[in-house]
């Protein structure tokens, strides 16, 4: 069977598929690093905790995690809403709500990191 698909342009969800997996890997690596740093390092105190998050690499890594989370969550939420949220007007409203929630998370994270 010949399917005449235009590979460029419509994407058929391939972009989302790949983004979902790449962002998952970034978050998985960050989670393991975070666990090792917190559990393997000095006993936690405010000074240790603050110093960890003032280091440049940690801020960038955390921002990368937050962006991955936002992207990953947006794709996941969209899939869930497409499957269950009826009617379309409710789904659209929930899309908007979650887009705003995820954008707010991202803004909040930046605010916490670069205070």
């Amino acid at each position: 069977m010949v399917v005449n698909r235009v590979v460029v342009g419509a994407h058929y969800g391939l972009g989302n598929f790949i983004a979902q997996r790449v962002t998952a890997l970034i978050m998985a690596v960050y989670s393991v690093i975070m666990l090792v740093v917190v559990m393997g390092g000095r006993p936690l105190s405010y000074a240790v905790w603050r110093d960890l998050f003032t280091q440049g690499w940690m801020r960038v890594a955390t921002l990368l995690f937050a962006i991955s989370l936002a992207w990953h969550a947006w794709i996941g939420i969209k899939e869930i809403l497409i499957d269950y949220a009826r009617p379309d007007s409710l789904r659209f409203a929930l899309h908007v709500v979650f887009a705003l929630v995820i954008a707010a998370y991202l803004g909040w994270t930046i605010q916490i990191l670069w205070r």
Binding site: A73, I77, F98, V101, I102
Partner: peptide, 12 residues
């Protein structure tokens, strides 16, 4: 879904 809301907000 629960990690996106409400758990992410709580952790932040």
């Amino acid at each position: 879904a629960l990690l996106v809301f409400p758990l992410a907000a709580w952790l932040l």
